[in-house]
Design a protein around this nucleic acid. Sequence first.
DNA 1: GTGAAAGCGCTAACAC
DNA 2: GTGTTAGCGCTTTCAC
Lengths: 342, 342
Amino acid sequence: MFEPVKLKDIAKALNVSVSTVSRSLSGGHEISEKTRNIVLRYAQKLNYRQNPIALSLKERRSRSIGVVISEVANSYFSQAISGIESIAYDRGYHIFITQTHESADREIANVQHLSSRSVDGLLISLASETQEISHLKSLHDKGLPIVFFDRVSPEIETHKVIANNYKGAFEATVHLIKSGFRRIAHITGAHHLSTSKDRLRGYLAALDLYSIPCKPEYIIYCENGGMIQAETDAAIAQLALMPDRPDALFIGGDKLSTGCLSALKKQGLQVPQDIAIAGFTNSDVAELFKPSLTAVSQPAYQIGQKAAEMLIQLIESKKPVTQFETEMFSTELIVRKSTDKV
Amino acid sequence: MFEPVKLKDIAKALNVSVSTVSRSLSGGHEISEKTRNIVLRYAQKLNYRQNPIALSLKERRSRSIGVVISEVANSYFSQAISGIESIAYDRGYHIFITQTHESADREIANVQHLSSRSVDGLLISLASETQEISHLKSLHDKGLPIVFFDRVSPEIETHKVIANNYKGAFEATVHLIKSGFRRIAHITGAHHLSTSKDRLRGYLAALDLYSIPCKPEYIIYCENGGMIQAETDAAIAQLALMPDRPDALFIGGDKLSTGCLSALKKQGLQVPQDIAIAGFTNSDVAELFKPSLTAVSQPAYQIGQKAAEMLIQLIESKKPVTQFETEMFSTELIVRKSTDKV
DNA sequence: GTGAAAGCGCTAACAC
DNA sequence: GTGTTAGCGCTTTCAC
């Protein structure tokens, strides 16, 4: 098998002690220039690499961070991951990515697994199903740094990074209203998620501003957040059958937006003739849909970067951090054909 | 900070030795039922977890595998990752995902980083830019298990997992021909990639079967594999300007397929009226495009699973493996509107 | 300036 | 059946 060079090998070959080698390599001051150079040169020649596992054991940290998301196959998350990765890489951290597929059980298992793998910190966007976060709380109480992004929880006081979901939803809804639609429904993710709540508030605020009464039956929660297409189909079917069928739809989720487009197609409803839609999505192909999709896009890459930065800062902070921030990024409304009034 | 329970804590509390605790926990036979029960119960109560880092140091393996792909934001790879993850998780392995973004330099850095992080093995799909794989060869020669998937290299003898790219391309091209198209161009990824070569062969074989002469100018390589949209746009522009403009297009890459759709739109070419298209893609929204996209879909999840299985088998094999296999999976042709003859 | 030795958490060979 | 000890690769304190 693969046998990397270790300090002992170098020490033996050079007839010095292991500690001399270690000190030379780590740039210790108390080493003679001459010895250091010899060691350095030899180590270089043998392509010596520190064994990170031994180092972790020694330092009692792993230089790795755990990432918990619902799915990589989601444009928002895959972009966020790239952002996280870019920062982590720069700072010498590795990332463990785990997927919950929106299941609370898998989230618990993943978090458990990661913490037992001694990650130095956790970056998490909660699963749709998760309502109770004692699995995170206990870890956090024990001192494990955690930074929330996207779907956050008020129950743990720590850094959080989110998009301005309220404003994004508000703008999208206003755009629908200004385009001439009045019967605007809202399909969104699990009711307890922070993102769902904020987006709902934005939607309601826009209706309110234009004095459009809000119909409770126009608000539909998809508890699986688009993970299960049948649920999305059912939501659309429900809207389609209403006597006072909506003429527009504001969708509060990445997976849901494409899911609704697909469901509407199955229902035989034309977009935007029968019903206009605008939705949160970071898809890079929203332009190509039939019709092209008016989208609320989040700066997912930057959100990932910021979250990683904050986590690493937390990890590397000498004294316990007590001041926590919630960083908020602006969304962008990209108007396309799915909200054209015809 | 976060201080997990260790064997020593349990030993001290129970007034036994560390080894007794270790043996009880690992189900050693030479322990009295009584002691074991006491230890087990206490460990349970304290929620004891083995420290995987210490274990790795001891066992000289990390129970983790490195995954090198071009991008997670790619339907094929995100599905493959899920497959890899499902197997790895079952077998007690963690995965490190790294992205090359098609750059050879980043691939080298990632591989280097992973190997220095002591992964037990590597799962890799080569970057578009990679032509020279000595960085992998040297690691492989030193005994690091490597399994290739998707984009493989003949230069290293090991297990490989791929889709039947030849047949997938053949079927897609035949479908275009049978639909009545004759001037069929082929846009594909970097010329040296195994996938590009196999798909080209399939395309040529189909043309040949129907005695359609192959025009060299109808074959365009996008060396960045759709990563840079400008390159894809240029390829389409080139085709659009030909005096004998193709009436159909077979596309040999996931990112390229959507990229071409977008480029055609910019060129003002209607699909399929002006030009029909069929392409490799695992996108779950190919149905929603305008027009819906005829796709060659790969069983990415299964490919990921198989690759992970093979790698773990390699890792855990007692004796050096000398017999290597290349596992091939069938693709599926999903016919949609983008290849309708009008 | 350099070496010896302890210790990070764990397992296992070797005592008893 | 249980304890003692060495060792995985590394850093760092303490001697010299």
